[in-house]
Design a protein around this nucleic acid. Structure first.
Lengths: 203, 203
DNA sequence: TTGAAGTTATACCGATCGGTCTTCTACAAT
DNA sequence: ATTGTAGAAGACCGATCGGTATAACTTCAA
């Protein structure tokens, strides 16, 4: 039970820290604030996390992993049609972009804030990118696209552009725009015949 | 001449601060470092800039303005063909992305770092976005696209995605990818126009 | 030649940073 | 009942933060 309570406490600290890190940025949130808002003792934090840098790493790892699950789930539930799923990957963003506490991509933000490839958290970005590649790779290959690697990377660029645009320029229309862009990319990568048929049937 | 030297000194401080801010981020560079690397006295900096926040604002304003000039110039020199110019707006990024000191978009980075709309520098991002809109607006209307506003915003999303992707995932192929994406967007909007003409003439 | 203005160098300010250490308390397992 | 452990509370550390004050020195114009 001691151990169980420890785990919960650790989780609680990570929850509070995650909220603050995402909302205000990892560099703008100090240890003191995390301690104050989670209502724990200073040493309790350092008992569970060796340093702030490692706390940041753990925050990023959990946040990106949770986001990936949320995102994949949303896409999966959006449609059963492979092509529609790819498009849903962008229209699904709209609600997120419009949510009051939207602050962009936690991983990207942290990389910009830290500006240091040697930071322990920098490793997370590669795993994150690889997960994105896998997710879109699955969607794209389900849709029967050849040269899928290139399409995947293109879609990721659009996704990244949408996330950062929604952050700095506001969410209005961004998701829809990204979806339209993805649609054009998808059509371009489908062989001409299939694309023509699809376009004709959707008209 | 006193004034002239002052201006130069001020410019020198701004130069050094800009280099550090862009390379390491505005939050990761302290006043002490700017002073040390520019070889001036502490009070000289505060004589020319009221506070670090206002120094950041001035840095951002100058950096975004200079970047816009550079970008517009590159595009203009790339081609005289309107359509090709739009595509050049993306292929031109490749050299920048691959340059050793590429660190993404100074404005976006600062917004992420500051995470505060009340910061004096936050106003710069609106001017920056408006400049981008004007630039792409000119290119797109020269290419004879109707519904140009939407295409402009789509292209900006792609541009933003390319800049942030090149930063976090590396520059390989990003510019070419963005160019291809822009090409598809452009064709789609031109097709729409052609289709509209076809529809109008057959009615 | 005198005086105003600009620059330098340095000491200093309170606040905050990330992190350590110590003391006391509460409680669980033996 | 005793002991081991986790956490609370807070003092404390050196370093750094952005920013101010002051005094000496240079420059240059009236």
């Amino acid at each position: 039970m001691v151990q169980a309570r420890s785990v919960n406490l650790r989780e609680h600290i990570l929850d509070v820290a995650s909220g603050l890190f995402y909302k205000h940025g990892v560099r703008n949130v100090g240890i003191d604030r995390i301690i104050a808002e989670s209502g724990i003792a200073r040493m309790t934090l350092y008992n569970h996390f060796k340093s702030k840098d490692l706390l940041i790493e753990e925050y990023l790892r959990r946040a990106s992993s949770r986001w990936m699950k949320w995102y994949a789930g949303k896409i999966e539930r959006a449609s059963e049609n492979p092509r529609e799923r790819i498009l849903a990957a962008f229209s699904v963003l709209d609600g997120w972009f419009r949510s009051r506490d939207y602050r962009g991509c936690s991983v990207t933000n942290a990389m910009v804030e830290l500006a240091d490839d040697a930071h322990p958290a920098a490793a997370v970005k590669d795993e994150y990118h690889e997960s994105l590649r896998r997710l879109f790779g699955g969607l794209v290959s389900d849709a029967g696209v050849d040269d899928s690697d290139e399409l995947v990377e293109e879609l990721i660029v659009v996704l990244r552009g949408a996330m950062i645009s929604a952050l700095v320029d506001g969410p209005q229309g961004v998701a829809a725009r990204a979806r339209r862009t993805a649609e054009h990319l998808l059509d371009a990568h489908l062989d001409g015949k299939a694309a023509a048929i699809r376009r004709a049937s959707s008209a």
